[in-house]
Design a protein around this nucleic acid. Structure first.
Lengths: 255, 255
DNA sequence: CTTGTTAGAATAATAGATTTTTTGTTGACT
DNA sequence: AGTCAACAAAAAATCTATTATTCTAACAAG
């Protein structure tokens, strides 16, 4: 009787992932997209409702996010979304420019034709994806965000050092939150495609110095845009709401 | 009646920290000291018994350690101590040499006399602490380990970049596991005090180039010692035990 | 003797209930 | 009026029970 094999296949496909893992990924996406606002209190029971998960799952997911620096835990007072600040942004940008540069240099030294091809493909996809939601130009297009991440990953994928790539990934995720906040601000002004293309061409030409310089400028430009806006992203504490919403500080995607 | 204030003070002192936090710290210490061996299966219920904690606390602690790369989670199969390998050690060492160098360079540029004093103090303590347990020279002295960590932290504390220091801390912790494994191997052969002193003196002399070079050599030496030992740290799988112990792969401190 | 199957035991994942701690509010007192 | 303590409501932390999955090993068939 082949019934058993069938059952096994079903159960395996049913739980390729675990409930906690799911919750973690959704929370992480909400954090990176700033749908959960920096500094906001994260009430476990609310999150359970919004994500359809239970206490344990949410708590575990938040614990993981704590070590990633996207959430902060305060001993008997629960979790908050990690705050942001101009100082941190400056620091983060400087460090990220260095680390991305190191990765890029190694990738340029070690990359083969497979790396080149994937890079070209990632650039093509990115350049053909609109940066903002066609319906609402204030909002970033999720597909663009994914393509942008994939392009930067392709650039450094031949780096050869798992640890360097891991550090890079941490910094990229942190920067993503700030990038999201800058989107509603800088309307146009900037030709991102040209910047990306220049970095790619320097990389393909194996000009490590030029590639690093362009990458550093690319990373720093987003930061400058955000810092020049008189820093409008501070957490507003206890400001009287206009009664249009309940007293939720944070609004997740899964409501 | 002042009874209330008294109660409040008591309850506050009773729970300066949370149970989960405790569990996390103890597990982390066990991991860094390799009392939990790389690759070993981490059975939640066993850990509960050894640490006197409950499921949730252990699970949360393990989740945090997962993002730190000290533990790996396998979807429906629980947690394992993160494995080690010669390849990873080589990578880790190279990256850590770079990052420590960057931190050191910045600290040398920015450090004031307070930094110098703390560095001298940390070196003094380290140099007066025996590296190995006097009773059992195969085992590393915990106090030395703490002093070593404090010395390296003092070296870079004036770095001025929280993110760079954070990356450094991740890499330092990872290296600590390998360092522990190398202790029973390299009997003497090496004058660590002299190495540390040389780095300190270069730093105090504000010779960034020299300090970086010495730091890199320092980091790489431990690695070389370990790699030259024909890599004796692989996880032994399912080798028949001599029946002296139960089938526990991992033995924690709190048994 | 090897390979594959299956029942049972062990363990991980999930869910929910209970206990502490914090927080916000009311009311007494200066 | 303003300050401080007691109380009540909310939320976090802890603990326990239940369900689902994996692992072990015994057993049957080739």
């Amino acid at each position: 009787m082949p019934g058993v094999r069938y059952d096994a296949a079903m159960s395996r496909s049913r739980s390729a992932t675990t409930h906690t893992q799911d919750t973690y990924e959704r929370l992480r996406a909400d954090l990176l997209a700033c749908r959960l606002r920096p500094g906001a209190r994260l009430t476990i029971s609310d999150l359970c409702g919004q994500l359809g998960a239970n206490l344990s799952a949410v708590r575990e997911a938040l614990s993981r996010l704590t070590s990633e620096g996207l959430v902060v835990a305060e001993p008997q007072r629960g979790f908050r979304v990690a705050p942001i600040s101009a100082d941190e942004l400056r620091d983060l940008t400087a460090v990220r420019a260095d680390i991305e540069g190191m990765c890029l240099e190694r990738a340029i030294a070690a990359g083969d034709v497979g790396w080149e091809s994937q890079l070209v493909a990632a650039f093509h996809r990115l350049s053909r994806t609109p940066e903002r939601e066609p319906a609402d130009p204030q909002r970033m297009n999720e597909a663009w965000s994914a393509a942008h991440s994939a392009f930067h990953e392709a650039l450094v994928s031949a780096c050869g050092s798992p640890w360097l790539l891991r550090l890079r990934a941490i910094l990229y995720a942190q920067s993503e939150r700030y990038r999201r906040l800058s989107v509603p601000l800088a309307e146009v002004a900037r030709d991102l495609n040209r910047e990306h293309q220049a970095i790619m061409e320097a990389a393909l030409a194996r000009d490590a110095g030029q590639a690093r310089a362009l990458m550093a400028r690319h990373v720093e430009l987003t930061t400058r845009v955000l810092l020049e806006q008189s820093w409008p992203v501070e957490e507003k504490r206890a400001s009287g709401r206009r009664a249009s919403r309940p007293a939720k500080e944070a609004v997740a995607s899964a409501a």
